[in-house]
Design a binder for these strands. Structure first.
Lengths: 179, 179
DNA sequence: CGTTAATATGCAATTTTTTGCATATTTTAT
DNA sequence: ATAAAATATGCAAAAAATTGCATATTAACG
């Protein structure tokens, strides 16, 4: 289980509340790690119980209390240890491909619609990533070198999405010449 | 949840035991749907309770009994209905990218080793897929048209793996010019 | 001014997945 | 011949993720 470790990677550089972490997940790891707010709040609770993180309560007037989490020494050690272990192979479960595999049970038009809907999502994701890439290129050498590793994860997203879209072209060509 | 539906896609064309299904998963859906034998046996049990599938016992001498599962009418309907619904977006959790994102906490050499180990896996996967693609090309028109949709899922695998490897080149170049 | 949407936090029940165990046969290697 | 590995089936406990609910504030819209 590495939601724990993803949270720690985000907390390591900066303390924050559950909601802060949710936002960081969406903004920074969104393309390769998805976590719901329930998952995050729950995980923070058990990580605190396990002594990996600590929190201080930010008592805001009127508003509900915010727990600002920080890494503990034990958490840091655990993170470093995880980073040094080989990670288990990524589990892939892609229902679109299951559907395509069983597509003979289905109307070609329905299949085509589904692919096109997915294409929109992938197109959108790609254009966001390309924009971030552009912004990165305008940074100073120093800034760029600080962000070099996150930038490489972005590159993965970009190459992955381009490959997906190239595949979708093949699928659409096939499905449209099928009637 | 679509393990259920993946099983049904496999059972729809041919009845089989839990182990048969495990093998089909590995051989046919392995690149985009991963399921353990425990998951499959368990799922078959609940699907039977739900009336989606039925089984006959193949009483083998000495060997443990085999339950040969077949789709029921209700199962078929459920499958068709699922196929016609838009599938929820694929959940991605890629710990390698989390690790790379937090790679500043880590020795470059360790990171490089990890990437290279993954590269081997991806290389292997790609070469298996390319071989299957070659075999497909030698089939008759009729056979090819029957397998057209599974072939498209294979194409997804091939394009995806090529993109992964191209990305790994970028990462390795960066990491090796880093010392 | 009131409604709706977005921000922000969290609990509890259910579902799903993972891990660890248990068992028995057949095939392969030494 | 014997040991080890692969084949084949399954249960049960634990861990993790999902779903549904609950609440309260702030911002935006008409």
């Amino acid at each position: 289980m590495s939601l724990k470790h993803a949270i720690m990677v985000l907390l390591e550089t900066e303390a924050g509340s559950g909601y802060d972490l949710l936002k960081r997940f969406k903004q920074r790891l969104g393309f390769f790690w998805q976590a719901s707010h329930q998952q995050i709040y729950q995980q923070l609770k058990v990580m605190h119980q396990a002594g990996l993180i600590d929190y201080s309560v930010d008592n805001q007037q009127g508003k509900p209390d915010r727990k600002i989490y920080v890494m503990t020494e034990a958490g840091h050690k655990e993170l470093i240890s995880w980073l040094n272990q080989a990670c288990k192979p990524q589990k892939i479960n892609d229902s679109l491909l299951v559907k395509l595999y069983g597509g003979h049970l289905l109307d070609t038009a329905v299949l085509l619609e589904e692919i096109q809907a997915h294409r929109e999502q992938h197109n959108k994701a790609l254009s966001i990533m390309l924009e971030i890439e552009q912004q990165y290129q305008t940074l100073s050498d120093l800034e760029r070198s600080k962000l070099a590793l996150p930038f490489l994860t972005l590159r993965r997203g970009i190459l992955g999405e381009k490959a997906w879209l190239a595949w979708a072209d093949e699928v659409e060509i096939f499905l449209m010449t099928q009637n």
